[in-house]
Design a protein around this nucleic acid. Structure first.
Lengths: 342, 342
DNA sequence: CTGAAAGCGCTTACAG
DNA sequence: CTGAAAGCGCTTACAG
């Protein structure tokens, strides 16, 4: 009933070693013999036993490198949890790891860490990349050296790599617009959009998704302001302070990036008479708390845990079994959370 | 660096067989010796190698039984996908399976299938139970016979079992109410709630969540009608037809169960002049299509794939490694989807 | 290019 | 109650 390498070897009248070499495309097998073995294995319905493979590979441990631009950014806490969970699982299969965290999306620092990991002879890399030429070049070097790279949370353009795991930022913008539209119930609304920076691709895409969807589907919602806070709480605080002073007609603020804490502080200090509606992205402790208290109406999430988990898992499976994901872009779900479902 | 059973055996001056017996609480070890071995293993930081364990257990295959009340209910398609994915994964670890599907939540049929699986000597069961005394009794028998049971999607009361994987239905009601509240934007709304049957615990809980949250947080939303459609499209069609005739002031319908297709048909045939808002649960093809076309505004999802996947995975891990989930209730996320994030 | 053999770490039937 | 040994299925260093 169960077909092992032994049955294939007997059927092909060769040794098990030769079957292994042929089936895994290892060098040093007569091509004709290899072809015959592969055919026979196929006919017999041979499926490799993962446990045995893992066990046999125990002697030759591989190492996954991880670099996250996560320091001081609470959004990444769940990404890190996902990474750690998957790394632990991979540990059962004999894969080790080295994790490095840096502050901000800083290309030079990123390159430095990548070099450090190369020194350590990593077999593959999971990374939150900066979308820069220099980083793209380095990733290309890794891939050329047969060190697969998986990007998580944000992607990098113009380099082939094993996979990207994260949300589609344009769609994430569309979802916010749809939510704002639903919440308007047809009434006229004046809204301010606060992002980190248009220079970050993800942010620009998200903004585009929001603006285009509002324009096409919800003409009752007027975008009064689009502002950049550099993901900084203090800057966001001041922006919102001014905003509330200058735009008394404002009904809604959408924080599409970090800096939420500063922004909300400004709202709470200022907005005594009218009820401003606030919509955010992601689910940090600050957002959670403000959802509970009713200050934030809803937030749009993107499965950070899964981004970290799947990123590592996809790389691990590739290193262990050579399997690639079906699509090189693995989208995580975008969904709307309220105080009740967080 | 790596601690195996061999190191523990050497440190304890016993054979590896004895270490294995002690660490896995198998019978036939001098209690004092066992205690000493456990202590030493702990000090050495011994962690069992899953691959080796799986391989060694190849000889003694176990079988997971699955029973789903899924026939003719499109909601369960994703649950089935999750079950199948996990079963395939478990296959790599030498666990076989038998899956049975029945139509409707029929206790007698369920009991029949359970008996069939017992004949087949299953080692564990994953099931969508009917919340009845007879089924509870049978589950208790299984658990007493050391055959662990995991319930998915809906739970059963008053029987201890390995785990329940599914959403919290009261919360799922709260989320709908919060969404309806947000969409009202403070305006007066008249709403009809359509459920399958109050006799089904999940339905009753969901209804309660909706009604209580509306009452406490959104007094501007008036519940004009609560109706039961027995999850039947034809019945739902007629209910909604009547409803729209009798309640011209209605602004919103929430379908909290199956029968959506019939209900929407009635709305589309009738509702030419006013714009009714429709909110549904789950994400079947019918709902997806109507979200896309704008007829359904939003739907509330509960991760059906994950319910199936985790249910099987939790049982599999228990059978393979004896590990129980941290909590016997494993909640799947509830989230709101719009046309953009489905 | 190919085979025989050792080994990965754990489990269990068997013997004592 | 305990130990020695075979075996799970795959991989690779070694010998030829």
């Amino acid at each position: 009933m169960k077909v092992t390498i032994r049955e294939v070897a007997e059927a092909a009248k060769v040794s098990r070693g030769t079957v292994d070499r042929a089936l895994n495309h290892r060098p040093g097998v007569n091509p004709q013999v290899a072809e015959r073995i592969i055919k026979i294995a196929d006919e017999l319905g041979y499926k490799p036993d993962m446990a045995a493979r893992t066990l046999a590979n125990k002697k030759y441990t591989k190492t996954i490198g991880v670099i996250l631009c996560s320091e001081g950014n609470p959004f990444f806490n769940d990404v890190i949890n996902g990474v750690n969970n998957a790394l632990e699982e991979m540990g059962h299969f004999g894969i080790q790891n080295i994790v490095k965290k840096i502050k901000g999306f800083d290309a030079d620092l990123l390159l430095e860490k990548m070099d450090e990991l190369l020194e350590e002879k990593i077999s593959g890399l999971v990374i939150t990349p900066v979308n820069s030429k220099s980083v793209a070049k380095k990733i290309r070097e890794l891939e050329d050296a047969n060190i697969p790279v998986v990007t998580i949370n944000t992607d990098i353009s113009s380099v082939r790599h094993l996979a990207y795991v994260g949300c589609d930022y344009i769609t994430s913008g569309c979802v916010a617009a749809e939510l704002l539209g639903m919440m308007s119930n047809g009434a006229e609304e004046h809204i301010a959009l606060i992002i980190g920076s248009r220079m970050v691709m993800a942010q620009e895409q998200r903004l585009r998704g929001i603006e285009e969807t509002l324009k096409s589907d919800y003409s009752n919602i007027i975008v009064d302001a689009v502002m950049e806070n550099d993901d900084d709480d203090q800057k966001c605080y001041e922006l919102v302070k001014n905003l509330l002073r200058e735009k008394p007609e404002l009904t809604t603020i959408c924080f599409a990036s970090a800096g939420v804490e500063g922004g909300i502080k400004a709202v709470c200090e200022t907005d005594c008479k009218r009820k401003l509606r606030i919509v955010t992205y992601d689910l940090t402790d600050v957002v959670r708390e403000n959802l509970r208290s009713g200050i934030v109406s809803a937030t749009i999430c993107q499965e950070p845990f899964r981004q970290g988990f799947l990123g590592v898992e996809i790389l691990g499976r590739y290193l262990l079994y050579g399997t690639r994901p079906e699509e090189s872009t693995v989208k995580t779900h975008i969904f709307i959370a309220t105080k009740y479902n967080i």
